[in-house]
């Protein structure tokens, strides 16, 4: 059984439906990548799993979210509070804004263990220092006594990861954890997350727009566009034999240096906003293979080995 599984998730804000038909599952010791451009609904998916939709005025209208056999879709807020930041950890994109600038690092991380593991402040501090040490932060005791502004971006992101780990989660959701960081720091953080998945047998949901990060870390991939999943499968099939024209185009957008033979074409047009989701296949206005049927009918998923694509022409040679 999967640690976390999302089936046919649909989300609405009033009469607007920014998310529909999103499914994925992730096991212990596994990393799933949710990849897509801005506005594709990646972060909204994360917020749905974290039960944070009511906070921004949204609600789940379809499908369900199951965590360790428990349905989260109708979980009361009091029960959600125990899970959130506890057994389900969240790492946000911007470490600069996810720490309280007025509090020292120590107490901010301690708070997680005090709240979720009912530790005394003293126990919690010992645990905090342990976690900082496993995250290869030099001199944890000293760091606990610092304020966020005294640290670099990479160090702050490690603190945010420490907070997510403090309550010993089973699932970690990382929403663009390295987007705000320099490449060498990104490499440090990605290595760290990889090690954590293996050592702690975590299930990691990695949300990113960067296909290279996906290629480096993920076991499985979901490709999202305009609030829908368009293709999912193992990382090897997604990169070797992508079926959906959007996935193919997205991979074609990655600059590959050196030989200068591969031309970057880009994808004509722009990602539609939630008010202008196209009818039929959401990608059809930008798709080079679009036919009449694509403008009217939303394609169903068709399976190809261990992947599946929602395209009328998946598997058909162009």
């Amino acid at each position: 059984m999967s640690m976390l599984s999302v089936r046919d998730l649909g989300v609405a804000f009033g009469s607007i439906h920014p998310l529909s038909g999103v499914s994925f599952s992730v096991d212990r010791g596994q990393t799933i990548g949710i990849v897509g451009e801005s506005g594709s609904g990646k972060s909204l998916t994360a917020m749905s799993v974290m039960g944070l939709l009511p906070l921004i005025g949204g609600r789940i209208t379809d499908g369900n979210i199951e965590f360790d056999g428990q349905d989260l879709t109708n979980l009361p807020e009091t029960a959600y509070r125990k899970l959130r930041g506890g057994r389900i950890g969240l790492i946000t994109q911007n470490p600069m804004t996810s720490l309280d600038p007025l509090k020292k690092i120590g107490p901010q991380v301690d708070a997680v263990a005090i709240l979720h593991l009912e530790m005394t402040p003293k126990e919690a501090r010992a645990r905090t220092e342990d976690i900082l040490e496993t995250l290869r932060i030099p001199e944890p005791a000293l760091i606990c006594d610092r304020y966020p502004h005294q640290m670099s971006g990479g160090m702050k992101q490690r603190i945010v990861i420490a907070m997510a780990l403090a309550a010993d989660p089973d699932v970690l959701i990382a929403d663009e954890p390295t987007t705000a960081l320099d490449v060498t720091v990104q490499a440090q953080i990605i290595r760290l997350l990889d090690d954590l998945v293996k050592e702690r047998d975590l299930a990691l949901v990695l949300i990113t727009h960067d296909m290279s990060v996906v290629a480096q870390t993920c076991d499985k991939v979901v490709v999202m566009y305009a609030g829908r999943a368009l293709e999912f499968g193992t990382v090897e099939t997604i990169f070797d034999a992508p079926q959906h024209p959007y996935t193919q185009a997205l991979i074609g957008c990655i600059p590959r240096g050196g030989d200068g033979t591969a031309k970057l074409d880009g994808i004509p047009g722009t990602v539609p906003t939630v008010m202008n989701y196209p009818k039929g296949c959401p990608f059809h206005p930008r798709c080079t293979r679009a036919q009449e049927i694509c403008t009217t009918t939303q394609p169903e998923f068709t399976s190809y080995g261990d992947s599946a694509a929602a395209c009328h022409f998946a598997g058909v040679a162009p």
Binding site: V183, T184, A187, S212, A215, Q216, C218
Partner: peptide
């Protein structure tokens, strides 16, 4: 070399163990 090694290849077959740069700027 560190910069080049920190740049991931967009191909899961070329995945490699990252040896991250230690320390801070």
């Amino acid at each position: 070399k560190t910069l080049m090694d920190s740049t991931f290849e967009p191909d899961p077959k070329l995945r490699r163990l990252i040896a991250p740069l230690e320390g801070e700027v």
